[in-house]
Write a protein that binds this DNA or RNA. Structure first.
Length: 203
DNA sequence: AAAACGGGGGC
DNA sequence: GCCCCAGTTTT
């Protein structure tokens, strides 16, 4: 009951969920890698700039590292990421016929791709029932008492037990928005929060 | 289990 | 100037 209320209210608060303009698996994969440990105000324009120059697997696979590095210069960890997204593109081109793989095991073989990034691609790009756990999902799930875990991987498994499957792929987008705007890491805006009457308010 | 990677934005 | 951020890899 509690969990149903939480997601009912999140969906009411963010009826469009997280807005992904482009759900192409390759675009999602690269943009999600770029977004790691980087705010979206920085990531979104950088991703747009990148794809205006190198918009396909083939083009990014053959791209010059220095040119890619310049295009994503504002993104956190841009030096290592510029190499990784080119290597990812080359692997997809050579090992997967230019098509982003649609299984967790294959995605995890790509450099710079962990469970969070892989599950974002599988959920948003391939419509699979998976839960992408980032710092927002991990923090909010524990703060609100949906789970009691110390590691993101545990959170993923525990959420699978508690949340109805149809909501799995939307958990990340909803909690990211909620985590950025209300249930922030530090000084959450509990006053006026729509969860006020049901949240254990551990903070 | 902890360190390292890292520039940008908020305060 | 200090702290934090849509994680993953390496030690």
């Amino acid at each position: 009951m509690y969990v149903e209320q939480v997601f009912s209210r999140l969906k009411e608060l963010y009826p469009n969920g997280y807005f992904h303009a482009n759900r192409d698996p390759f675009y999602l994969l690269i943009s999600t890698v770029l977004s790691q440990r980087t705010r979206d105000e920085v990531t979104i324009p950088a991703t747009q700039d990148l794809f205006e120059v190198f918009g396909t697997v083939q083009e990014l696979a053959g791209a010059d590292v220095d040119e890619v590095r310049e295009l994503i210069r504002n993104v956190g960890f841009y030096r290592v990421k510029s190499h990784r997204i080119i290597d990812i593109s080359r692997m997809i081109l050579q090992d997967y016929g230019g098509v982003v793989p649609n299984s967790i095991d294959e995605l995890l073989k790509l450099p710079g791709v962990g469970r969070k990034t892989a599950n974002c691609v599988l959920g948003y790009g391939y419509e699979q029932d998976v839960i992408a756990v980032d710092t927002h999902v991990h923090r909010i799930s524990n703060r609100m008492g949906l789970v009691d875990t110390s590691e993101p991987d545990e959170t993923e498994k525990e959420l699978e037990k508690v949340v109805s499957k149809q909501d799995w792929k939307d958990i990340n987008g909803l909690m990211v928005l909620f985590g950025q705007n209300v249930c922030r890491p530090v000084s959450p805006k509990c006053g006026g929060c729509i969860m006020n009457d049901i949240c254990p308010k551990i903070i």
